[in-house]
Design a protein around this nucleic acid. Structure first.
Lengths: 121, 121
DNA sequence: TTAACTGTATTAGTTGGTTTAGTACAGTTA
DNA sequence: TAACTGTACTAAACCAACTAATACAGTTAA
């Protein structure tokens, strides 16, 4: 369902949080689907339950999941979560574009880069 | 010349490296210009010389500066350095674009985001 | 009710990367 | 010679990330 990469310098909880966010916001994990339990996922990934808990806590703060003590954690895709992610990606996009411009690239060249090497409709 | 931000979670040596790279690749610091000496910059920023050295070492590995024992470090903008940065930014751009697409945005909408809120010729 | 699950909280300890500190060596310049 | 330069090395301090162990409370089903 989700994998962690120990060569990735990012902390495990970030990899989990970002990986699940991707699955949820893109609809791979559908709303109301049950997330793996903290202990279950910790056992299957051979990491500490606290690390899972931290990722889940942040996903809940973002509006991606809802956790209910005793019952479990469930996908709960929120408009706010989608918008927040879109805003974040827009900032990243604009920063990369800004620096590419300072390197002398024109908007046409940047748009070409953007379309190359990607599947696009 | 360069500033460090203690609220920035990134390590100091990365802030220095990225800040100088920006100044060099954009031409603010011209080729053959003398970089501040390791000890001088360490004193003026009130940080350890080893931290400066680490940033300089990486900038030299990237081809942004050339260090000469006894003489100092000098701006040495290389085609390879420009290309490497361009490749890096392209990857960032394409990743942001890819995820924005999975959120349902069309290329036209993404291009609009890219142009909005930026100075562009 | 009991047992087994669930999320949550807390405290303490380990680990690894960053940074500091001190020292040393060698090349350059005036 | 004296003062600068980059470079190298070791040791220690520091801090965030992560682990570990334990505990508490709510839910679910036999």
């Amino acid at each position: 369902m989700i994998q962690i990469n120990y060569r990735d310098p990012r902390p495990i909880y970030e990899q989990l949080r970002d990986g699940f966010r991707q699955l949820i916001l893109t609809g791979v994990l559908e709303p109301n689907a049950k997330m793996p339990s903290v202990r279950e996922l910790a056992a299957s990934l051979a990491i500490n339950p606290n690390t899972i808990q931290r990722a889940y806590r942040e996903l809940e703060a973002e509006g991606c999941i809802c956790s209910v003590p005793g019952r479990g954690s469930f996908v709960c895709k929120t408009d706010a979560a989608v918008l927040a992610r879109r805003t974040e990606l827009t900032a990243q996009l604009q920063q990369a574009v800004g620096e590419l411009r300072t390197l002398g690239l024109t908007d046409e060249e940047i748009i070409a880069l953007m379309k190359e090497g990607n599947d696009h409709d």
